[in-house]
Design a protein around this nucleic acid. Structure first.
Lengths: 222, 222
DNA sequence: AATAGATTTTATCAAGTGATAAATTAAAAA
DNA sequence: TTTTTAATTTATCACTTGATAAAATCTATT
């Protein structure tokens, strides 16, 4: 089925495979997606892919290289854009919610268990540069300009914390919850809500004052 | 290599298989763990397991039934124990950190993609009763007694939020981070830190006051 | 048109996968 | 001891997996 009238230039086919593989890998995980599924969804037979990628692992690596590169550009753009720290955090979260529908831990597990150690380290460095460090830079800026307090978490743990919160959206799990949770909430609202919890917490004002007092009693310096 | 001198009573073998399978499934995911791995790690041959479980899915279901049952008891025990909401939240988080080393999203994905729909719903209800609802009950209590504010998140989304924060611990990913993150932090410290961020947020005092003012201007009733 | 090179398909492999049947052994009942 | 039942192993199946070889097809250049 399908001889193209105008040969798609090789690069087109290659990036089509990458895009197809991206969607499948992110949804089902590395192990569960077969090379035949990727090929078929790309309109090819399975062995054809081996003309473009040495093996399944090389394809997966290319998928991650592509997505982390795009993300890095977008994230740094947001960090360098105007506005308060809170506003930019919301933008970051909204971006991640939009372009990373499935969670990061799947990716991390695939990397840990299915890839060669050299590939692992490579991907981790890409992931740090695209996700972790831009977010951490924003937290550091906030701690320096005084809009964020530095006592609780350093910038990088803060970034980890934010990322972990994002990956699973409340109510996404599709379960029949007792009350009406999981209604269609716009991404912007979702992002703002997430950031506000992260910044201001869930405690009431009285609780917070009490906490502050205790902190000034037996506190730490380092 | 083993013929037992005193027949282990069937139930022992069965629960040994469940425990072995639990560890493997939680570390590698449903798809990646083979029935032969489970059998071998349990000291059996692969077909022997089929004497105890109808198939791989039935075994996985039993694993989850067991772990959610244990968790439900422990979690409800903590919720009903004494202390402030914050103290009990810390206990809950510490328990989860201790007894759920690998993250929940792996489990959720396995359920979504590898199990029959009936099994899915069954497991989801177990998971809700053991994890979600006990935590939500605690949040609800906090909102009612005034130690938690109700405006931002309802109890159940709050519980989702907390669970999502727990599953990935900062610095756990084993990556070579720029600065010294991921040092061995005791579980209790980790749990307290997580809960404090959740309750009190990362914003500074000035930032918070500004936020509160805006909230009282264009706010919502429902 | 003829050649050369890139792309894609057909056919196939070896290694695993979950699962079943039949034979074997262990333990308990008679 | 013999019989019966539970537990386990050996052998095997049908199927899927990632990967390779060789043939076929396309594209462009000469």
């Amino acid at each position: 089925m399908g001889r193209r009238k105008k040969q798609p230039l090789d690069e087109e086919t290659r990036s089509l495979i990458i895009k197809t593989a991206h969607d499948l890998f992110m949804e089902h995980g590395y192990r569960s997606v077969t090379t035949r599924q990727i090929a078929e969804a790309s309109g090819l037979t399975q062995p054809a892919m081996y003309h473009y990628f040495a093996d399944k692992e090389a394809l997966y690596t290319e998928v991650l290289r592509t997505v982390t590169e795009e993300t890095k550009i977008a994230m740094n753009g947001i960090v360098l854009s105007g506005g308060t720290v809170r506003e930019r955090l919301i933008k970051l979260v909204a971006y991640i919610l939009l372009y990373m529908p499935d969670d990061l831990s799947q990716m991390e597990r695939d990397i840990r268990h299915e890839l060669r150690p050299e590939t692992q380290q490579l991907i981790r460095s890409w992931w740090q540069e695209s996700y972790l460090l831009p977010i951490a830079a924003l937290f550091e800026e906030g701690q320096k300009n005084g809009s964020l307090r530095g006592g609780l978490l350093e910038p990088i743990p803060s970034a980890f914390f934010l990322l972990s919160v994002i990956q699973r959206k409340p109510g996404r799990s599709g379960s029949p919850l007792p009350k009406g949770i999981g209604n269609p909430v716009p991404v912007e609202v979702m992002a703002a809500r997430t950031v506000d919890v992260l910044l201001f917490g869930l405690a009431s004002e009285e609780e917070r004052l009490q906490y502050e007092n205790n902190e000034n009693k037996g506190d730490e310096k380092a």
